[in-house]
Computed example of a mutant assay.
Amino acid sequence: MFEARRLSTKLLLQVLVTLLIIPFVFPLVVMIQGSLAGQGFGNYRAVFAVGTVGTFFRNSVIVSVSTILIVYVLTMLAAFGFSKLHIRGKEIYFWMILAALTLPEVVLLTPLFATTLSIGVYDTYWAVVLPLAALQIPFTVLLARKFIDGVPDSLFDAARVDGANLFTAFRFIVLPMTRPIAAAIVVLTLIGSWNDYLLPLVLIQDPAKQTITLLPQFFVSQFSNDQTKVLASAVITAIPEIVAYLCLQRLFERGLAAGALK
Results as ranks from 00 to 15, higher is better:
Thr140Trp: 05
Asn225Tyr: 15
Ser118Lys: 14
Ile68Val: 15
Val187Asn: 06
Leu16Arg: 12
Thr110Glu: 10
Ile68Asp: 08
Leu36Cys: 08
Gly259Tyr: 04
Ser8Asn: 12
Ala46Asn: 12
Met76Ile: 01
Leu130Thr: 07
Val107Asp: 08
Thr189Phe: 06
Ala184Phe: 04
Pro111Val: 01
Gln136Gly: 11
Asp149Leu: 09
Val50Phe: 11
Glu253His: 11
Val47Gln: 02
Ala183Met: 07
Ile212Met: 09
Ala133Asn: 07
Ala258Trp: 11
Phe219Gln: 01
Phe48Val: 06
Pro111Tyr: 10
Leu261Asn: 11
Leu231His: 00
Arg179Leu: 14
Ala260Cys: 07
Leu251Asp: 15
Ile148Asn: 07
Leu85Trp: 03
Phe41Asn: 02
Val47Asn: 00
Ile148Gln: 08
Ser60Pro: 05
Leu108Ile: 03
Ile68Phe: 05
Val243Trp: 00
Gly192Ile: 04
Phe56Lys: 13
Val202Phe: 05
Ile137Pro: 04
Lys84His: 12
Pro207Tyr: 04
Leu143Pro: 02
Asp226Leu: 09
Pro111His: 01
Val128Arg: 01
Phe218Glu: 07
Leu13Val: 14
Tyr44Cys: 02
Leu28Lys: 04
Ser60Val: 00
Ala100Lys: 03
Val220Asp: 05
Leu203Lys: 01
Ile62Pro: 09
Ala37Tyr: 05
Ala257Asn: 12
Leu248Val: 00
Ala169His: 04
Phe172His: 14
Thr52Met: 14
Leu248Gln: 04
Asp162Val: 01
Ser224Phe: 14
Lys262Gln: 12
Ile70Asp: 05
Gly54Ile: 11
Pro240Ile: 03
Val121Tyr: 06
Pro152Tyr: 10
Leu251His: 15
Leu13Pro: 14
Leu214Gly: 03
Val71Cys: 08
Thr9Met: 13
Ile191Ala: 09
Ile92Arg: 13
Leu166Lys: 13
Ala49Arg: 07
Val73Leu: 14
Ala46Leu: 10
Thr211Tyr: 06
Ala164Gly: 09
Arg145Pro: 09
Thr55Met: 14
Thr9Lys: 13
Asn195Asp: 10
Val106Arg: 14
Leu20Thr: 07
Leu135Pro: 02
Gly38Met: 06
Leu248Asp: 05
Leu188Val: 00
Thr228Lys: 07
Leu175His: 03
Val29Trp: 11
Val174Gln: 00
Ser221Ile: 08
Ala244Gly: 04
Leu85Ser: 00
Leu101Trp: 09
Val71Trp: 02
Leu188Phe: 13
Gly150Lys: 00
Lys229Pro: 02
Pro104Leu: 05
Ala238Thr: 14
Pro207Ile: 01
Gly259Leu: 03
Lys84Ile: 06
Leu11Lys: 08
Gln14Asn: 13
Gly54Trp: 12
Leu112Gln: 15
Leu256Phe: 10
Asp226Val: 07
Val230Ala: 01
Ala257Ser: 14
Leu98Met: 13
Thr211Val: 09
Leu13Asn: 15
Leu135Ile: 11
Leu215Lys: 01
Leu20Gly: 15
Gln210Glu: 10
Leu246Asn: 00
Leu201Ser: 10
Phe41Ile: 12
Leu13Ser: 13
Thr140Lys: 00
Phe113Cys: 02
Thr18Met: 02
Gly51Trp: 03
Val65His: 04
Thr18Val: 12
Val128Cys: 00
Ser8Thr: 09
Phe252Gly: 03
Leu248Lys: 02
Val15Cys: 10
Phe57Thr: 08
